[in-house]
Amino acid sequence: MLSPIRSLLKMPVLAMLAALTLVSHAADAARLKVGITLHPYYSFVANIVGDRADIIPLIDADANPHGYAPQSADMIRMMSMDVLVVNGIGHDSWAFEILDAAGMRKKLKLIYANDGVSLIPVAGAPNGEKVVNPHTFISTTAAIQQIYTIARKLGELDTANATFYRDNARRYALQIRKLRAEFDAKITGADLSKFRCATMHSGYDYILQELGLQVTAVIEPRHGVEPTARQLAETIDRIKAAKVNVLFAEKYFASKLSDTIRQATGVRMYSISHISSGKYTPEKFVDEMRENLNTFAQAINDSSKGA
């Protein structure tokens, strides 16, 4: 048994420990829990918040966000979020099904990453129809615009860290802009007039526009929808007539269709990452965009040499 004097001496220590525990709990409670729907948004948020907030991916890392079927575990994850960052313009419509199923539609704050993005139509849409392209995250400039929006809105929710988020967003934006400089260095002296490209789907319209490259034809009439035999025949004719020499296809979803087109037209095929699968990491967006830009540079250099 402790003597009364020793007990008294211990009391301030215990009080301090209790106070520290309370402060620690308060800090935990104050830490934002930011949900995200797509892989690029994980990287964006991670680079904005650093170690000052927690990031919760809404769906498992290995789930395919194209045509995703919501799971009960998603609702549980959603319940723990303070705010959810969404694409909101067609690439994560399943997130809204989860919101409804969890009864969180009116309760959970949403950050629409694309709020401030100037959208472009899908290139090569049938009949010249102007359909909004939701692939804003496969880009550099449009990605930066989203990063600024996310940082600003997180700063509104977490005012104590608003400046920290803004500064991180700017640093990250510059890192993304440097990717373009690396790309430029790789195509020094290349003759861009010989470069004519088609894409399997409209996923690369934003980045190609930012690089100053035009898309001549898009194979799939809608993302994930294979063309009819007639549409395919017309597209092949268009590729031949426009002397398209490069076809960009999705890296992790190779299809027999791209092989058919390659055989029918003689185009060279290159694979581009959709940045929508694999482990969630802060580096993923920059790493995969660098890889994509290297692939674009390779395609340009091959066209330039007439390979």
Binding site: V83, N114, D115, L157
Partner: peptide, 21 residues
């Protein structure tokens, strides 16, 4: 004038879209 993501969200969800700002 752009067709911004905010306008597209409004087109998809109407005025009911629960954005933080």
């Amino acid at each position: 004038v752009p067709h911004s993501g905010a306008q597209e969200v409004k087109r998809i969800f109407g005025d009911d879209s629960a954005s933080s700002t």
